[in-house]
Design a protein around this nucleic acid. Sequence first.
DNA 1: ATCCGATGACATCGGTTGATGACATCCCTC
DNA 2: GAGGGATGTCATCAACCGATGTCATCGGAT
Lengths: 212, 212
Amino acid sequence: MTAAGAATGPSEDPSDGSSGGTEGRTEPAPPRRRDAARSRELLIQAALELFAERGFDRTTTREIGERAGVDPALIARYFGGKTQLYLATVRLELGAEPPADLLEEERLRTLLVRLTQRGPGPSFQAAVLPGDNTEVQQASRSYLYERMVHPLRDRFTAEQVDRPQLRAELAAAAFAGVILARSSGAFAELAAADPEELLPLLHDLLTASRPT
Amino acid sequence: MTAAGAATGPSEDPSDGSSGGTEGRTEPAPPRRRDAARSRELLIQAALELFAERGFDRTTTREIGERAGVDPALIARYFGGKTQLYLATVRLELGAEPPADLLEEERLRTLLVRLTQRGPGPSFQAAVLPGDNTEVQQASRSYLYERMVHPLRDRFTAEQVDRPQLRAELAAAAFAGVILARSSGAFAELAAADPEELLPLLHDLLTASRPT
DNA sequence: ATCCGATGACATCGGTTGATGACATCCCTC
DNA sequence: GAGGGATGTCATCAACCGATGTCATCGGAT
């Protein structure tokens, strides 16, 4: 994992011929050599990976700059500081996809695969880690809450299950625990398990948050 | 690393016949001014709380000393450093109770109540948080592993369930997620729920790690 | 009463981190 | 081609942390 190739590599090159990637949702990479937008993008991407790997505190701005191949001073210039950069990564996660209902198998698969590839976002750690109620924590948590708890609570409410909120929080917490444990390195077999293999087990587990 | 054993001269107990009551944790604040054993005890207690609240990194030796009412320098003297103090707290947790089988309702209740009162130990965070494989992480994880995963795996193996190890890790991860989420402050209703109220829900959830 | 080890408070060191400002370089506009 | 703003690089600062050395003080043994 982590490969992401990113690393340092000044690989990229103004070479205009580089285009061709249909995948890119954006315009073909502008050939500009000095590009603040690109620097910002690289910083966010590196920060997203590092925050997910080590958490907020244990990640240094120098590491982010190194992985992004960008001078750490630009973090202050473009975001205002390490904290604002973190918030930017959280907002990025947030805008990604519509709220997913964890009990729907197809959406659970999507989420699981995505989290396996890209690792859990910073918000997962914030949900589980105690800490002072800083702006950082608050933003991360509200993201995770709207993303996972609310859809579940709405489903339970519609099904007229008792304690829908509590059950939704329980399922979300269990899910977060599993996701984090997979990438923590503490549970070998859980980490090595293929998403397709893990899916039915996890689905059964989460379904049990709803009364039989 | 570093000094390690060097600093720790008087490894074990001066045992000057201090109050024999090992059980009674609530001393009436003995007016003794110089008592190494008591200082160690106070440091471990404060460290246990702080490590559980904020994790290893975000806890400073000065905070530990302040809460314990003891000079932070004594951490180095009595334990060899912050790391060894952490390991001491983990070992303290470890010796507490026999391995519990999370699927047995009575044991789950005991564990849940205990964790509700005293908060999750430092090891729970270590299980879920990524990090370099330092000695600290390793010790915490092996503790949690022997404590929660192995009993479950043995049960599943005895029941001839497929993938016993994977299922055991899954259940343990989910349980850790719920426990940590309760004390994280991110999930209000989950944190406010009474253990007796939460118990059946959690039991159903964990039971689902076993195939129907 | 005296001596000596045990204990704890204080000062400080080396290292790291986040942040900031000065300076150099590049690109676009005119 | 020159000017000016934008962009990137570098050096450095202040704050914090963990660790360690030093020294005053206490308490029991002699």
